[in-house]
Design a binder for these strands. Structure first.
Lengths: 114, 114
DNA sequence: TTTTGTGGTATCCAATCGGTTACCGGAGAT
DNA sequence: ATCTCCGGTAACCGATTGGATACCACAAAA
């Protein structure tokens, strides 16, 4: 003799999730890091490369263009020599900071436990 | 004549980031969704498949085993017929909920703006 | 004259990733 | 006797991903 399965409809699933929408922004490799390092102010391409040592120029370039296309950052070419480029979080981009901070918070807890 | 470049050392980068640590958990496809649907209580394999219609059994299975290995969820086989398996967030897993909520919050804002 | 600094792009490549399909055991229901 | 339900696994496959390397223009500095 054995127990019966509980009905599958037992508990209704939580409401529709907008997770996918937001993860489409945060999903790419290094994306949260880029946003994190932009969260304290504008930053140049080379500075970001230095901030995130293991990122390749190709990937950093790709991420920046994606984020620009999504309206998360703006790109501004400065009239210097050689020309330098400054990236800044938009208002939309700044709305991502609490999420990034929450992720960082969990990361800190994880580190403490090890 | 043209402007000079500002020194690269101008502003120090923010402190070392534990982002990567946490994103190693949240990074896989569907992972945040799985945690989200577990956030309101234990849930069975088939229920999760139903919650996340486009996920394949293979990927759901992989994610659940990964999360179990990372100590985010527990797996419990119930003595039913046919056997059913219940997944539950651990205490560590519950610490991820604020981050998930923050991500959901941004997703909601994104939806409103469209 | 040569070197340095900047912000990239082009190309190639191996690895990974996730989807698809087929299949499984074992008990209960029909 | 056969079908259904449940929670998977195995094998295969194409697409995507990200890393490595080489290369670019242009101006200023050495």
């Amino acid at each position: 003799m054995s127990l019966r399965l509980r009905k599958n409809k037992a508990s209704p699933p939580p409401p529709v999730c907008p997770l996918t929408e937001c993860m489409a922004i945060l999903g790419g490799a290094w994306t949260p890091n880029v946003i994190w390092y932009l969260s304290e102010g504008p930053r140049r391409f080379g500075e970001l490369r230095h901030d995130i040592p293991r990122i390749s120029a190709k990937v950093l370039s790709a991420r920046l263009r994606e984020l620009e296309g999504q309206g998360v950052i703006t790109r501004r070419v400065m009239p210097t020599s050689p020309p330098s480029v400054e990236y800044t979080l938009t208002e939309l981009g700044r709305e991502l900071i609490p999420a990034i901070n929450a992720i960082v918070g969990v990361g800190l807890k994880l580190k403490k436990k090890r």
